[in-house]
Design a protein around this nucleic acid. Sequence first.
DNA 1: ATTAAAAACTGCATTATTTCATCTTTGAAT
DNA 2: ATTCAAAGATGAAATAATGCAGTTTTTAAT
Lengths: 233, 233
Amino acid sequence: MSQINHQRYYDCEDCLFKTISCQYIQKEEFEKLRSKSIQLKYKKGEVILKQGAKSTHFLFLRKGIIKFNYEDENGKNLILSINKAPALIGGANLVNAEFNLFSVCAIEDCEGCTIDVALLTRIALGNTLYLFKMLQFITDVFRSSIFNFISLAHKQVNGRIADILIFLSQNIYMNNDFVLSLSRQEFAEFAGCSKENVIHTLRKFHNEGLITLEGKKIILNDPERLQKISKHG
Amino acid sequence: MSQINHQRYYDCEDCLFKTISCQYIQKEEFEKLRSKSIQLKYKKGEVILKQGAKSTHFLFLRKGIIKFNYEDENGKNLILSINKAPALIGGANLVNAEFNLFSVCAIEDCEGCTIDVALLTRIALGNTLYLFKMLQFITDVFRSSIFNFISLAHKQVNGRIADILIFLSQNIYMNNDFVLSLSRQEFAEFAGCSKENVIHTLRKFHNEGLITLEGKKIILNDPERLQKISKHG
DNA sequence: ATTAAAAACTGCATTATTTCATCTTTGAAT
DNA sequence: ATTCAAAGATGAAATAATGCAGTTTTTAAT
C-alpha cells in the first residue's frame, strides 16, 4: 500500500463521499478534506486497519469488499462483519477515540481514500446535520453485524451457514450466483464453527440441490428453502 | 408503570444525568428537559422498551439492572447485553431513528426518568460537545455486547459460561459474591445454549470448587481459573 | 511444464450439546 | 397451611460438532 508519490487513480468528481458531503458542507470545506486525503489501492488479503493500532484516519472505501476481523489472545480469528463499498471504515472510534478494536482487511481488491479524522471531526462539529450523516454512515457498517450476532447466538450451524449464504447474496454480491471471496477457513471464522463443518454443510446443501457448488463459485438454487433452514427448519 | 399523577420519587438534584448535562448546557436548558421528563419505577420483569415499537423517549436509568432482549420469528429469546444503572437506554435510535430493534426489560427493580428524544436532539444539535457526550453514553451500552458476541462466536459453552460469570461479577455486581438476577433460562438465552447445559455446567463448576452455587447465590471462588477456562483451557 | 505449498475435501472417532422424561424445590396465591 | 405452577435439577439417549489423519485439488512460483 506504499504510495510514495500519492498518485491519483481516479477522479474525485464522481465520488459518492464528495456528493454526500457537498449536500451539507461548502465546496471549500470539502476541498480541505480532499487536499489532505490520499488515494490508496489494496490487494485482496491486505490489512487496511490493524487491530490495536491507533486510528489516524478513516478510509472511505470506494470499491471492493472488506472484512472486520478480531484476533483473540490465542491467535484465533473471528470475522464480525463483511461489508462492500461504499462505506466509511474506521468510524468505531469517532466517538470514543482510542485504538482499533478490530482489523479491517480487503477480501477483494479495494480502492479508497484516507480521510483525516481530526479535520472531519472539526468540520462536522461545526455542522451538526453533516455530523449526523457521518454517524449514520459509520453505524451502517455495524448494523449488519448485529444480525450475524443474533444468528450465531441461537442457531445451529445449518442455519448459520444458510444465513451467511443469504446475507452474501443479498447484501454483498447482489446476486444468487456469485464467486465467494472467502476461503473455507474464513467462512468458518464468520460462521463460528470449524472449517470441516463448513465444507460438510455446503456439500450437504449441494447434494440436496439447495445450492450448486463449484469450488469458489456458488449458486443459490432455492433461496426460499434456505430461508426456511435459516428459520430453523 | 402507569403514573397518572407523575409523582416524583426522588430529587433531581443529585442525578448523574443532570450533573453531566450541566457541564455542557445551561441550567435553563436542562430545566426544559427536566420539565418534560417523568419519573418511573419498573418492577423486576417489566418491559421498559418494546421491540418493534416506536421510541418516543429515552430512559435515563438511575437505578437497577436491565437486559436487552431480542425475540426472533419463532418466539425464541436472546439476551444481547446486560447493563446496570447509570445508563442512557434507547439511544440505538438517536442516529437512525426508526423502531426499537430490541426490547429492554428490568431484571431487577429499576428507577429512571423519560427523556424527550426530540428535545434532547434539538439541544444537542446546538451544542456539539454535549452531543458527543450523549453519543458516548449511548455507545457505552453497546460496548459490552461486542465482547459477548466474540465470546459466543468462538468459544464452547464452558468458556461462554465462565465469561458470563466474570462479566457479571466485574461489570454488574462488582463483587465475586452475588445473587443472580437471571433465571437459568435467561442465563441460557445470554450464553446461547440450552438451560440444561447451563445447569449442568454451573453444577460442574460447583463440584470442581470453582464456584459455590446455592440457588440464585453464586460465589466465584477462583476467578483466575475461570479466566483460564474462558481462554479455552 | 514442473514442483511445492496451500486450500479443499472426506470419513471417522471423539467430544460437546441438545432434547426428553422425570423428579424436586421454590414461591406465590388462596 | 395448602395447593398449584414455575423454576431448578438430573441422567440418559439422540444429535451435532470438532479434530484428526490422510487424499485430492488448486494455486503460485520457478
